Simulated scan of single mutants.
Amino acid sequence: MTPTPVPPAVAGLTLRVAIASHPLPVTALTPGEARQYARLTGGHRRRLWLTARRALRGALAAAGLDTDTSVHGFPQPRASLSYAGDLAVAVVAAGGTSALSGLGADIELRTPAPGTARFFLTDREQDHLAALPAPRRPASLLRLWTVKEALYKADPDNARTRLRDYALDDPGARAGTARTVRAPTRDLPYLTLDLSRGCFSVAATPSHTGVPPVSEHTFAELAPKIAAFVSLPVEEITPGLRLADLALDSMASVELVVDLQEDYDIVLSRDDFATVETLGDLAALISSRLPDPADH
């Protein structure tokens, strides 16, 4: 496991972070973890899951929590997991977490294609990127991508939110605040860390009163459907998980779309999926097509 120098707090919360690049031995699994592992299929998926267990154990231990990862379901407000290549990162909030309603982490090793910026950056953020010297743009684009993913994962009310809906107060800040179009007065703190390869960001959503109720058609409802379709434990299904990471062939992709249309009684076209990269994006797309309860 790779030790990671992390600033001591985000939004006043002490964070414990662990990054792993090697899988946990199967013989070291607890009974609960072994049952979860047995449900997985495919060597790559199993290796990645074991690597994530190693990282999560490290972060839980540092936070003084039970290191049996099977007792910690995801998504949850005090911990977050992210994967990239052969790396897995786990972030856990230590101590009291009454002031926390969401925590999100994202690690990325490869810079997204420049043309994708318009899908997750606001116009102001794109202007900031374009104003940078050309050699600095790839690293900045990678940082902004991880920040947006971390903010999305940290937001418990993200069912109807796109990555572009999170606006950074200062696009050039490595530690700063963002806000959403849904709640423009609510600060969402984040920070970014450089790794020996790639980039890592973590974000938090502080608790507050008066949170508008989340639609009943949220990611929490979609997750079990996706988990059953791809034969993954539901705790492995997170808003930031990319559709590409599910390794669906063209036939399986069509079957999934048909199933979702039937389940939700909506129509989804090929063009609808042009900006869908993550399961969170998919949940937001579905939610946008559902009838407003106020209309009934």
Rank of each mutant, 00 (worst) to 15 (best):
T122K: 03
L65M: 13
L282F: 10
D295V: 10
A247I: 05
D155F: 10
D245T: 12
A55D: 06
R182K: 11
V92C: 06
A38M: 09
P189D: 09
L232G: 03
S101H: 02
K225F: 08
Y152H: 14
V26M: 07
H217V: 07
E149W: 06
A55T: 01
G172T: 01
G198Y: 03
A38R: 15
T2H: 14
M251Y: 10
P135E: 13
L29D: 11
G64S: 13
K148C: 11
D68G: 07
V211Q: 12
I226N: 04
R46Q: 15
A105S: 14
S269T: 15
P213D: 11
H128I: 01
L232Y: 10
L29N: 12
T180W: 08
L81T: 01
G280Q: 08
N158R: 15
S70W: 00
A283R: 06
L248R: 12
T69D: 08
W49H: 04
S21T: 08
P75E: 09
L142D: 10
A105H: 02
P239Q: 11
L243I: 14
A154G: 03
R186M: 13
R242V: 03
A228Q: 13
A247W: 01
L279P: 02
P206S: 13
A117G: 01
P3I: 13
D245K: 11
S80G: 09
L56A: 15
T218G: 15
A173P: 07
Y37S: 11
I286R: 10
R186Q: 14
L29R: 09
D165Y: 00
D249T: 06
F273C: 11
V214H: 06
D265A: 15
T14E: 15
D292Q: 09
V258Y: 11
T185P: 00
D170Y: 05
Y152F: 15
H296W: 09
T275F: 02
L243M: 14
H208K: 05
L232S: 09
L241G: 02
P184Y: 09
E216S: 10
